[in-house]
Amino acid sequence: MLSFEKLHKSFGKLHVLQGLDLEISEGGVFAILGPNGSGKTTLIKSVLGMVIPTSGKILLDGENVIGKWEYRENISYLPQIANFPANMSVKELIESVKGLRQKKSNEHDLIALFELEPFLDKKLSNLSGGTKQKVNIVLTFMFECPLIILDEPTTGLDPLSLVKLKRIIADAKDAGKTILVTTHIMSLVEEIADEIVFLLDGVIYFQGSLAEIEEQTEQSSLELAIASILEKEKA
């Protein structure tokens, strides 16, 4: 469904993506892992057109999307840091974002799920970090999009909300959607991911299932497996 061909991206002298090739098949949860600065966010942002690749192709259902914008109708994105216009209320923000898309939305269920009703008329600047993240999650999941991209989705969430988020992700997966997640929380990956994409120095170092990465590194958990890859690279 989504594929990258020889993707390069430099920021000045820093060569972040170095000819990355990747194939993401339709349906399932893909965890994009890698140490800090390995290019995870750059990769995600280039799918969204927020970062413009230096060269290479990004194909969504066979069509190169670089420089286009209409295709974003079919992508939901949860950004890492959520900051909204300070003077708007939660309700107004949701209405405004709805106005930018053609698709129907089901925000009511999500608002009820995260118990956001008391905050609907509050100004966004008065919300706590966790509540903002919940609003962010509502904005992401209220549209039915075949591709969902989550950048560090758990930031600031309490355990109960985290459980709810995992359930939403599981439901989306059951509905046949493709979900890309970046996170540093390995237990989350072990719980939800079908496939692991490990980025190192701007190329794909490993792509496969959880069992495969553990087997390949002869480790008993994902955390240890990743640690052993990184250690080997350093040596």
């Binding site: 927020m50 914008w69 974003r72 109708e73 900051n83 909204f84 216009p85 930018l100 904005l139």
Partner: peptide
């Protein structure tokens, strides 16, 4: 500068830059 993060949210929507 203040609306930078919000601009990023808009950039991920199906809207032309």
């Amino acid at each position: 500068y203040n609306s930078k993060e919000f601009t990023e949210l808009l950039l991920a929507q199906p809207v032309k830059r």
